[in-house]
Design a protein around this nucleic acid. Structure first.
Lengths: 143, 143
DNA sequence: TTTTAATCAGACAAAATAATCTGATTTTAT
DNA sequence: ATAAAATCAGATTATTTTGTCTGATTAAAA
């Protein structure tokens, strides 16, 4: 089942959302993150290493090490994570897979999909992790 | 780059749209379809065989064989092809990959994504191949 | 200073998706 | 009849995505 993003990206989003529910600067081990989100430990670790390069996540090595957000949670949007992991391709490509889908050579659903694409982009951009905090706590508490 | 549907599904949608631009009952060989859509011939053949099982496409064997729509183009919607190839999972799953994403246990973007999902579904359902014909001809003419 | 527990790096393995190949069968036309 | 051109079926290969393993490095605590 495919819903817009790769598994990697989904896991990255979940992990970052989870970190945003903690006190700023709180270090959480990949094992803890993996456990609560039911994600393979090494996999989530890899993904967070990747997000570290993009300045979204901070990593602390050694005993009692782990990951935390690298910036304040009101400075991070979901789109930041998406673009770091999956890139911006989703927002350019044609839903029907046609090449050169553009206003000049639109596919049969070009206009309608354009609206959706913009809405999806807005959804990921408008709110910061901070603003999603309550909803995130609620969701993660239910896992 | 991942945009909602599998390559298989994209190819299936393109092929069916292409067939809908022909006179009803016109048999087109997989080679012709493959050529105009730049899809591997055997692959598109496999996909159309699959759609044959779902009663969307008719296949004629032997010399001068090929594929045609199995019903009138005003009886086929894009969603029919999607559900035959990719299934309906896209319209149920959580964008963030959370499990049990539902009104009871919504993810942080549950409501907003719900709107998008519905719009995507409507986009694929509202119009028939027939109604998209002009746009399809225009697009395929530009390939 | 030694042990312990973590990230980090990169190779490796498994699974899913995409694409190709081969041969059999079917049908039309010669 | 026979040849040609297509689908059909299923095995095979290739690629991408997902997940795992191993060892090195780092840092805290005993």
């Amino acid at each position: 089942m495919k819903v817009m993003f790769s598994k990697k990206c989904e896991y990255g989003l979940q992990a970052v959302l989870y970190l945003s529910t903690k006190e700023p600067g709180t270090i959480v081990s990949s094992e803890d993150i993996a456990k609560i989100l039911s994600i393979p430990k090494e996999f989530v670790s890899k993904i967070l290493q990747n997000l570290t390069e993009y300045g979204i996540v901070y990593s602390k090595k050694g005993k009692a090490g782990g990951f935390a957000l690298a910036k304040a949670s009101n400075k991070i949007q979901l789109i930041d994570v998406v673009s770091a992991i999956d890139g911006m391709g989703v927002f350019n490509g044609c839903v029907l897979g046609f090449s050169n889908c553009s206003p000049d050579s639109p596919c049969p659903v070009h206009d309608k999909w354009g609206v959706l694409r913009t809405m999806a982009y807005d959804m990921l951009t408008q709110e910061t992790l901070d603003q999603l905090k309550d909803k995130t706590i609620n969701k993660i508490g239910n896992l």
